[in-house]
């Protein structure tokens, strides 16, 4: 049985870790881009960012003062049991958000959309968002927090099957160019692309692809993996680097996720995570231990299952850790 307090403590810790410590996969990806970057200004920006991440970790201060919209992704093992139940988990996540906002400190960004009123703690109606998924043959709960900037770098468009890969490339370029100018998208970033699903799930899949898959990860479908690589190269050929200056550093990595969609349509969404890509994951084990990591391991074979059942033999290895 997982204790309610264990959830709150872990959520508080990952709020701090996400805000302060840049994930190593992302740091490695950006350092790799510095070596290839030929633009003076763009490369200066990237080096400053690396200095900034070192300062954040040394001083234990947030790497970016814009907290973005802090939120959670929770993956629950099918055998997991938690004291206080799952409403209790949601309460713990809201409590941890308020506590971390005060202690880190995080900027209280969340306001009512119409009245602009706030509680100064990043908690409110539908905030923080909590998305749930499940995992077979497991008794743990994974809690991931993502702090992603909330204003720029995302678009959605309903395409049609005849628009094909050309259409996806156009939406991809349109989004990166529109929000890359002056660097409003805070590039270079991990870019997530959602293809298919219903409209809302198209957005959700693209967002999760950007925020919950690490640099270097490839979609298990080799043709989608090839598309990811092609889009990454296309983005880095725009000629735009960090802050929209001349350069080649736009896409640290590109992740595509798909969902079965309407036979007449091909919805597409594009999402850029931040130059300060902030994510952290805690695994709450059934024996009371908590372990921390930066790879959310969100897209398991179970998540991507195609038929009524799921590939039972693969799930245990893919979800171990």
């Amino acid at each position: 049985m997982i204790a309610h307090e264990q959830v709150e403590t872990a959520a508080y810790e990952i709020m701090k870790k996400a805000a302060i410590d840049i994930p190593e996969d992302y740091l490695g990806g950006v350092k790799g881009m510095i070596d290839l970057e030929t633009g003076d200004l763009s490369s200066f920006v990237l080096k400053s960012m690396v200095d900034n991440w070192e300062a954040a970790t040394e001083d234990r201060r947030p790497m970016c003062a814009d907290t973005g919209l802090p939120r959670y992704y929770v993956k629950v093992g099918n055998e997991a049991r938690v004291a206080g139940g799952f409403c209790g988990v949601e309460e713990a996540l809201r409590s941890a958000t308020a506590r971390a906002t005060q202690d880190v400190p995080l900027r209280p960004n969340r306001v009512h959309p119409l009245w602009r009123t706030e509680h100064n703690n990043n908690v409110g109606i539908n905030a923080p968002e909590i998305e749930w998924s499940f995992e077979p043959d497991a008794d743990w709960i994974d809690v991931t927090t993502v702090h992603k900037g909330g204003l720029f770098g995302t678009d959605y468009r309903m395409l049609f099957p005849g628009d094909g890969i050309d259409g996806i490339k156009r939406v991809f370029l349109d989004t990166l160019i529109a929000f890359g100018k002056r660097g409003l998208a805070c590039q270079p970033a991990i870019v997530g692309v959602g293809v298919g699903g219903s409209k809302d799930i198209c957005m959700t899949l693209g967002k999760q692809a950007a925020c919950l898959r690490v640099v270097g990860d490839a979609n298990p479908d080799p043709k989608i993996a090839a598309l990811e690589q092609e889009l990454k190269e296309l983005g880095n050929r725009i000629g735009m680097g960090a802050m929209g200056f001349v350069g080649s550093s736009m896409v640290v990595d590109c992740h595509v996720e798909v969902g079965y969609t309407h036979t007449g349509g091909m919805p597409v969404s594009v999402h850029t995570f931040c130059l300060s890509s902030r994510r952290a994951t805690a695994r709450l084990h059934a024996d009371g231990r908590t372990s921390y990591r930066t790879d959310p391991k969100w897209f398991t074979p179970y998540m991507r299952r195609e038929t009524i059942g799921w590939p039972r033999s693969d799930t245990s290895s893919a979800s171990a850790g």
């Binding site: 990237l46 400053s48 200095d51 300062a55 201060r61 947030p62 970016c64 003062a65 660097g183 802050m243």
Partner: peptide, 14 residues
């Protein structure tokens, strides 16, 4: 003057 990378919050905080 523009900030750099828009994410150098720790350096500026320092």
């Amino acid at each position: 003057l523009t900030t750099v990378g828009y994410g150098t919050g720790a350096l500026l905080g320092r």
